[in-house]
Structure formats: C-alpha cells, structure tokens
C-alpha cells in the first residue's frame, strides 16, 4: 500500500514497516507458542512415555505402547494392550461422533428455521432476536445445572409436563438412564447452541439481495423453490463455515457431558475420558495418548472438510 520510498536510517519505508510488523507480531507469537505449540508438543511427547501425574519428569520413552502394544505370553497367547484396543476409548469415540453428527445436524436445521424467521419482517423481531441470545449467553455449566433440575426424575418439570400431556405414563430419570442420557445431552446442546447457528446463518441470509426475492415473487415462483434454488446456494459458504465451527466445538465437548451426566458410559466423550485418565486415574501418559488421538482426528476432519467442501475460511481467497 505504501510504495513511497522515503529513507530513514538506511531503510526504505516498506522495510521499516516490515521491521515494525515483526516486533508487533513477536509478543503474540510468543504467547501462542507458550499456550498452544509447546503444550501440544509436550502432550504428544508424554503420550510416548510412561509419565505419571505425581512424577512429571520421571517418565521414560516407551514408544507407542500407550497406543498399542503386543505381548506374547509363554503359553503362546498374544495380548494386545493400549488405547487402540481399549473398548472404553472406542465407546467414547462412538459417543462423540454420534453426538456431534446428530447435534450439528439438528442445530443446522433448527438454526436455518430460526434464521429464516428472523430474516422475515414482523413486529417484535428485535425482541425475538434478544430472546434467542439468552441461551447463548448462559454459561454451559449453568445451563447443564438448570436442565438437570428440569430433567430431574422426581421433581423435574419436564416429567410433569409430559405426564400431564400423557406422553409418558411414569417418571423418567432422563440423565441417569442409559437409554435417555444421550438424548438429554443432545437436547441441552441444541437448546444452547442453535442461537449461534441461527445468527451465523442469518448473517449469510442478510447478504442475499432483496430484489432476488422480489423478482421471484413477480415471476410467480413458489417460495419453497426459491429457497432451494436461490437462497440455499447463496448462503452455502456461510453455512459451511458455521457447520465446521460447530462441528469442532461438538467433537471436543467436555463441560456439558461432565456436569449433566457424570460418569455415564452412555455419554462419555473423548475429552471426558482423556481428562479422566490424565487427572483422576493417574494414567497421565495414557490420557495424553488419547488427547493426541483426539487432536489427530480433528486435524484430519478439518483437512478433509476444507478440501472436499472447498471452504474458504479466510473469506478473501487467501489475499
């Protein structure tokens, strides 16, 4: 932008600016190195050792034994160990994937509906937008507690409503029951994060020029057809970005599951099981291996998504 070459201290202006830019960036890069790159590297290193929580520096390198190891007993029987053959880990993977796919799908569909409603002009639109921001503003832990009270088996208002409506004939322990625990987590997550989805989609919708709708109306095209042929393709970029951000959040979910359904094998996710091993069970290295696997899974997912979906995350064509 500034090509006027004035010299000061033997440097041209662009050079001077680049030097300043370096010093402006250095503190931020150092901070990110300290809290992101270095800890990630250490986590991966710990996953290759037998470090314990009580002796962080006493770990020895043991290769990939935390992931998978094979031992042949004298009887000739082969024993496989490590997180890759741990049923609890695969249960957590399955829970996380199931949760993420279902919650993001529901949130996208409901978010789209809410966004379309908010994109229409009607009295009280501002109030509705304020109302849907409330679940987003409530801390996750608070919403988990609020819902676990509402879903309480004995005194919960949800059971009361459903009994009155005749949907169920006896009270259900929503969060404790193995069959309903995942549904409870999904319900709370959908409640809490649909607003975020709706607002992101709404921003996309508002960039669609109004005259397109006008033209379609004059031509007598059915609104549903307009939606699928015009609106949806136009908001696709916004939708793709919103979905990946939600998906990443869902794949690393911890707090909601930890508080709403503590110690339930039906909902335990990858983050929950990894932290359990890291801190609670004193299997620090084993938990590190699981954290590393979660990171690897997320990286592969993001790479595939950007590549297959041709998502332009920067939104400026890499300018």
């Amino acid at each position: 932008m500034a090509d006027t070459s004035s010299t000061s201290g033997g440097l041209t202006l662009p050079q001077q600016r680049q030097r300043a830019a370096f010093w402006f960036l250095a503190p931020m890069l150092f901070a990110l190195f300290c809290v992101a790159a270095w800890p990630l590297g250490r986590t991966i290193w710990f996953s290759l050792t037998d470090t314990t929580l009580s002796n962080l520096y006493g770990g020895k390198f043991i290769g990939f034994d935390n992931y998978l190891s094979m031992r042949t007993l004298s009887s000739g029987k082969v024993i496989w160990r490590g997180t890759l053959v741990d049923p609890a880990w695969w249960n957590a993977v399955w829970n996380t994937v199931r949760f993420s796919v279902v919650s993001v799908t529901l949130e996208t569909l409901l978010g789209l509906i809410v966004a379309l409603v908010l994109n229409a002009e009607f009295k009280g639109r501002g109030l509705v937008r304020a109302a849907i921001l409330i679940p987003w503003a409530i801390p996750t832990i608070v919403s988990a507690k609020m819902w676990s009270w509402m879903l309480n088996d004995q005194y919960g208002i949800i059971n009361d409503m459903l009994l009155r409506l005749g949907v169920i004939d006896q009270k259900i322990a929503w969060t404790a029951n193995v069959d309903t625990a995942m549904a409870a987590v999904l319900l709370v997550d959908v409640w809490k994060t649909t607003p975020f989805m709706a607002l992101l989609i709404l921003a996309g919708l508002q960039m669609v020029p109004r005259d397109i709708y006008e033209a379609a109306r004059i031509d007598g095209v059915h609104p549903v057809r307009v939606f699928f042929k015009v609106t949806l393709p136009l908001i696709r970029p916004a939708l793709m970005v919103a979905v990946i951000f939600r998906m990443l959040d869902a794949l690393r979910i911890f707090d909601l599951v930890y508080v709403l359904t503590p110690n339930s094998a039906a909902t335990k996710t990858m983050s929950v099981i990894a932290r359990e091993n890291l801190i609670d069970f004193d299997k620090f290295a084993y938990g590190s291996a699981q954290s590393t696997l979660l990171f690897a899974i997320l990286s592969v997912f993001v790479a595939l998504y950007i590549w297959l979906g041709k998502v332009d995350l920067a939104g400026d064509g890499g300018k």
């Binding site: 800890p39 986590t43 983050s271």
Partner: peptide, 19 residues
C-alpha cells in the same frame, strides 16, 4: 492463528499442566 483457535483444549491440557 485460525488453526490454533480450532485446537481442542484437551490436547494441550497435559502440556499446560506441566508448564
């Protein structure tokens, strides 16, 4: 920088704990 914002927090938990 965008990639860092996508980091799962659990992936840095062990390293941060040590730090």
């Amino acid at each position: 920088i965008l990639a860092v914002s996508m980091f799962p927090q659990i992936a840095v938990l062990a390293g941060l704990f040590e730090l």
